[in-house]
Nucleic acid binder design. Structure first.
Lengths: 188, 188
DNA sequence: ATCATTAGGAACCAAGTGGTACAAAACAAC
DNA sequence: GTTGTTTTGTACCACTTGGTTCCTAATGAT
């Protein structure tokens, strides 16, 4: 996963992968069908590990308010800007941008993971509202779409090398929109 | 540009480029230094043509209100979802995600173009406010960052294959935040 | 200890990579 | 029409690509 994450699908050569996995060609092709299937496995693994960790922040019960949970997730991204990992970017975004259009199975996987992100944002956003008992998964996703888009935009800008101030500005904008929008969401 | 746009840097082979440009290796290497320099030229061209066209929408004087101009830009992206070009995605996003981290010159170019987008969004957003005379380019950029992030997030999701409803949801969220945020911006 | 099974390693494959060298062809000037 | 120059096409380069083969080495069960 790390090799694909850093280099991208095309640029990650088989020797790169073998080195990263600590095995030789023989074992590699005994264990996996081909390069693409390893990429897919890596993407699923990313969804199960990295994305799920982010979603857990949105679903934690420690900060009761959804707003606070969303704020924490964005804060973690701002904190990331001060680490060497800042430029590693987001594997999901890379897959979405350069593999999804060319590979239906990767597209399905990417959309599934993005859907989970949207729904988690939506749950957190709606948690603070009075009439939350009506919402189903689809409604959650819809409510979470703008937040997820801001989050993904943040990832892309982080990847591109934008400043920490820019990243913080995105987070601030997303949180402000949360504070001023509750009635708009509730009235849908 | 189209070849790099569709295939990405690595996946666009020299024969692909030669075919797209209508020349052979000899002429190609007489006219350009190497593949990378052509990519950079394509990226700059994208900034000068495609991105500038989007920015012109934000700066047009036909709809007097900045809100209306921003709405038009998002509306154009929603309209795009009904065309075959929907999946072509955004060349700038692809460059930002998979080339910027590995090539400082591409990073600089990407950040410059993104900066223009941020500033244009900021100008349009601030145009509707009373105290706009104080703003300089830096303040415009700062004000435009959340909108630009939403816009870029939209591009990524469009690229990934998200539904037209999702794209519309992002646009709606960005526009709503504009309507409810004027005081917050003005008080900065 | 024996034997069946599996994993490991290296040589090998054809095809494709970006890039160069150079001769032929087109063009310009006069 | 004859030059000198530039453009174009092609053969070629060394190297890398993802993937296969096949034999040896390690492992596990009985």
């Amino acid at each position: 996963m790390k090799v694909f994450w850093e280099k991208g699908y095309e640029a990650a050569s088989l020797p790169d992968l073998l080195l990263g996995m600590g095995l030789t060609r023989g074992s590699f092709y005994k264990a996996f069908k081909d390069k693409r299937s390893v990429y897919l496995a890596a993407l699923r693994f990313y969804g199960d590990q990295v994305v799920s960790a982010a979603i857990r922040v949105l679903e934690a019960d420690k900060p009761a308010s959804g707003y606070e949970r969303i704020k924490r997730l964005f804060a973690s991204q701002i904190a990331l800007m001060r680490t060497p990992d800042a430029r590693r970017g987001c594997f999901l975004c890379k897959a979405a941008v350069d593999r999804a259009p060319h590979d239906p199975e990767i597209e399905r996987t990417v959309l599934m993971i993005i859907g989970r992100i949207e729904e988690a944002f939506g749950r957190a956003a709606i948690a603070d509202l009075p009439g939350k008992q009506l919402a189903n998964a689809r409604a959650f996703r819809k409510a979470g779409v703008p937040l997820a888009a801001a989050y993904i935009g943040l990832q892309v800008l982080r990847n591109a090398g934008s400043s920490a101030e820019t990243i913080a500005g995105i987070a601030q904008g997303a949180l402000e929109s949360l504070l001023t929008r509750p009635k708009a969401i509730a009235s849908r």
